[in-house]
Amino acid sequence: MTVSIGHTAATAEQIKEAVASGARMSTHFGNGAHLMLPRHPNYLWEQLAQDELYSCLIADGFHLPDQVLKVVLKVKGEKAMLVSDAVYLSGMPPGEYTTHIGGRVVLTPQGRLHLAEQEKILAGSAQMLLWGIEQLAGRGIASLADAWDMASVRPAGFMRLPAAAGLSAGAPADIALFRRDGGKLRIERTCKAGEIVYRDDSGKGDR
Rank of each mutant, 00 (worst) to 15 (best):
Q67A: 15
P155G: 06
V106C: 04
R139D: 03
I175S: 04
I141R: 02
K76D: 02
A137Y: 01
G77C: 01
S21C: 12
K16S: 07
S143A: 04
G30T: 03
V106D: 00
A23C: 00
L136D: 03
P109H: 12
V75R: 08
T2Q: 00
S21H: 11
R180Y: 06
E134M: 14
V106H: 03
V72T: 01
E46C: 08
T2C: 00
G6C: 12
V153T: 13
Q67M: 14
R112I: 06
G32E: 14
M1F: 12
L130N: 10
P172C: 05
S90V: 06
V71M: 12
A147M: 05
T99R: 03
D201K: 00
R160A: 13
R112L: 01
L69M: 09
I58T: 01
I187L: 15
R112G: 01
M159Y: 15
N31C: 11
G132P: 03
I5H: 02
D66F: 01
G77E: 00
G95M: 07
G95Q: 02
T27N: 13
K184I: 02
I196A: 14
S168R: 10
A169D: 11
T11M: 12
R179H: 10
S168F: 02
A49K: 10
I187Q: 01
A193W: 08
V19Q: 10
P65D: 15
R154K: 07
A137G: 05
R186N: 07
E119M: 10
D146V: 05
R180Q: 15
G140K: 05
M81N: 09
G111W: 13
P109T: 12
Y43N: 14
E96W: 04
A126S: 13
W148V: 15
E78P: 10
V3Y: 13
A10V: 00
L161E: 13
A20Q: 14
S90K: 11
D85Y: 10
E13A: 15
A193V: 02
D149P: 04
K79L: 08
L48Y: 13
G30D: 06
C56M: 06
L144D: 03
G182C: 04
W148F: 10
G77T: 07
S84N: 13
A169N: 07
M159F: 15
P38C: 06
G32P: 07
S202Q: 13
L82Q: 01
D66W: 01
